[in-house]
Design a protein around this nucleic acid. Structure first.
Length: 115
DNA sequence: CCCGTGACTTCCG
DNA sequence: ACGGAAGCCACGG
């Protein structure tokens, strides 16, 4: 029996699958879970998984490649530092090569995605 | 138990 | 094309 917080676990699972040096967006994950408009809930899942070091929440940004969640991290520029450490180019809390390193679960995983 | 909030995105006018 | 409003799921008060 799946818990009621199935959405959380799924979101965390997808975020955990984000490769090193890649980033994804809340909407992409939400869409992969079948809830396109539930992007905010994905952010909540990140907040819940924040205590879990296995979930790279810093690799999850907005659809524009903006570090919208930087304010929720421990420090102020911690999220940017973590991403830059992985080779991600960031300018003013915005990923410059976002489209290049964007990792879309709908394209990469395509598990439940119909062909 | 009901209402509001939140790391966003999409749709309608 | 731009701006405003709705939607989605979960949690806290």
């Amino acid at each position: 029996m799946q818990s009621k917080t199935n959405f959380f676990k799924k979101a965390q699972a997808v975020a955990r699958k984000i490769p090193y040096g890649r980033v994804s967006s809340y909407g992409a994950i939400a869409r992969y879970l079948g809830a396109t408009k539930s992007a905010r809930t994905v952010g909540w899942a990140m907040n819940a998984s924040k205590t879990d070091a296995s979930v790279p929440a810093h690799r999850v940004v907005s659809s524009k490649g903006i570090l919208t969640g930087k304010n929720h991290f421990d420090g102020t520029n911690l999220m940017q530092q973590l991403l830059e450490n992985e080779g991600v180019l960031i300018d003013n809390y915005q990923i410059t090569n976002f489209k290049e390193i964007f990792w879309d679960p709908n394209l990469e995983l395509r598990i439940i995605k119909k062909q």
